[in-house]
Design a binder for these strands. Structure first.
Length: 421
RNA sequence: GUGGUUAUAGCUCAGCGGGUAGAGCGUCUGACUGUGGAUCAGAAUGUCGUGGGUUCAAAUCCCACUAGCCACCCCA
């Protein structure tokens, strides 16, 4: 017996219905905002992520599925979606199509880590990238789209957090001040924080260890280090969001795990059972395209975890019941009846009706049981009596009523009935 | 990578003072010889997660491994 690899999942049956419902909504929202789908490879050169996501990040340090191919190229399964899109943007010279370039993607991502609630090794993301605009309108557009998606999915209990990380100068100045604040307190903070102090000072703000909280409280605030330009940008984003009636909480301590974020970043949190999911996150990444060898092009994007979305949708009962698996079941008894049933099945299927017939050689009773289990709306019953009389029985499953219909008319009768629903 | 916890039928679980498996649900069949959803009856399906140890004897006790779940780290 071979089991699926750790941290992976089979998605089928009822579960897949919910996924498809999400995907449909996501595509709709993307379309409404003028985004076109892009499909990039599932594996890329490992270098792509090391250079964009950042070699200090956990993703690169310990979570990448890297492997060598037979020509000794160092490849990896993609851990996130933005870098491949940027790579493709540059490689295919999409800038020449005119800017902004607006694309969305949906598919599996891979990170080697311990699975738990809302976290798998193979997980799925829906994401969108708006490439080419530095305007606050572009930041607001992506936040708007995120919220639009949540609303479309009828998930209303979200909280949106936004932060302005500032430009490079602002961040350097802030980081210096932050380190200054922590310098004489290194003995008092947790080991993780001591490490962060050296490698990525901004993430000191992420620490949840109790002993570090008071020190964090007294730390300088990023907002105070923003240059006039960044302050202005932040103000404009805030105004535009207000105009869209989007309720955003500005959190100066919000920092994100990927190194490439600059300027505006945002996250959506959502209560899920005992915990809180980070449903979705995004932000501006103005330097990435240049870092990857393109010409400097400002960009914003976001991504959401589909597993978490689907779990939340189910928890909120925000999805309709999956549709019935067949609209019509054609029941037959005997060989001649079977031949007739195949004709009707074919006719109806060619008109887009979902039809099933007996493939198991079951008796009438068990065929009806099966039809019921498939949630059929109508069952057409064909037996010897019907063949003799030239009429078939049409049974409406939820009422149990059945009437005789002239055999030549039965398909049209069904079409009329279904059209009237 | 660290810590906690669990693993018995397709699913949910009982059996754990050792004596080679059971319930409910589901599936299939029948009662109803041509009528589903209700009821009743019957049937099928298990290397009791894997490997080792203790023992005359292990689902049960011990150890290791693997996997699930949960938390930390981090993230979607």
């Amino acid at each position: 017996m071979i089991n699926r690899p750790k941290g992976t999942n089979d998605i089928y049956g009822e579960e897949i219905e919910y996924w498809q419902s999400f995907e449909k909504a996501a595509r709709k929202v993307a379309g409404v905002f003028g985004f076109q789908e892009i499909r990039t490879p599932i594996f890329e050169m490992a270098e792509l992520f090391i250079r964009s996501v950042g070699d200090e990040t956990d993703i690169v340090q310990k979570e990448m599925y890297t492997f060598e191919d037979k020509a000794h190229r160092l490849l990896c399964l993609r851990p996130e979606g933005t870098a491949p899109v940027v790579r493709s943007f540059i490689e295919n010279n999409m800038a020449s199509d005119g800017l902004p370039k607006q694309v969305y993607y949906m598919g599996p991502m891979f990170r080697y880590e311990r699975p738990q609630a809302g976290r798998q090794r193979q997980f799925h993301q829906f994401g969108a990238e708006l490439i080419g605009s530095s305007s606050p309108l572009a930041d607001a557009e992506m936040i708007w789209m995120s919220i639009f998606l949540l609303e479309e999915l009828r998930l209303h209990r979200y909280t949106l957090q936004v932060n302005m990380l500032g430009c490079q100068n602002d961040r350097e100045a802030y980081k210096a001040a932050l380190k200054e604040h922590y310098r004489d307190k290194l003995d008092a903070i947790c080991p993780d924080c001591r490490r962060r102090y050296e490698t990525n000072a901004l993430r000191l703000l992420d620490c949840k260890v109790e002993g570090c909280q008071t020190i964090k409280e007294g730390a300088p605030i990023l907002t105070d280090f923003l240059c006039p330009e960044c302050q202005n940008h932040k103000r404009q984003v805030s105004q535009i969001l207000a105009q869209y009636n989007i309720d955003a909480t500005w959190n100066p301590r919000l920092v994100r795990g990927l190194d490439y974020y600059t300027g505006i970043v945002f996250e959506v949190k959502y209560p899920f059972k005992e915990t809180v999911f980070d449903l979705l996150g995004g932000g501006r990444y103005d330097q990435v395209i240049e870092q990857l060898g393109g010409s400097a092009t400002p960009s914003v994007g976001f991504a959401c975890g589909i597993e978490r979305m689907v779990a939340t949708m189910r928890e909120e009962k925000a999805i309709e019941e999956p549709a019935s698996l067949c609209q019509v079941f054609v029941l037959s008894i005997g060989e001649e009846a079977k031949r007739e049933s195949l004709k009707i099945t074919d006719f109806l299927r060619k008109r887009g009706i979902s039809v099933q017939h007996d493939l198991m050689g079951r008796n009438i009773r068990n065929q009806l049981k099966y039809a019921d289990k498939q949630r059929a709306l109508y069952t057409i019953i064909i037996g010897e009596d019907e063949l003799d009389k030239g009429v078939y029985l049409v049974k409406e499953m939820d009422t149990g009523d059945q009437i005789e219909v002239e055999s030549f008319w039965v398909e049209n009768y069904i079409l009329e009935k279904l059209a009237a629903l």
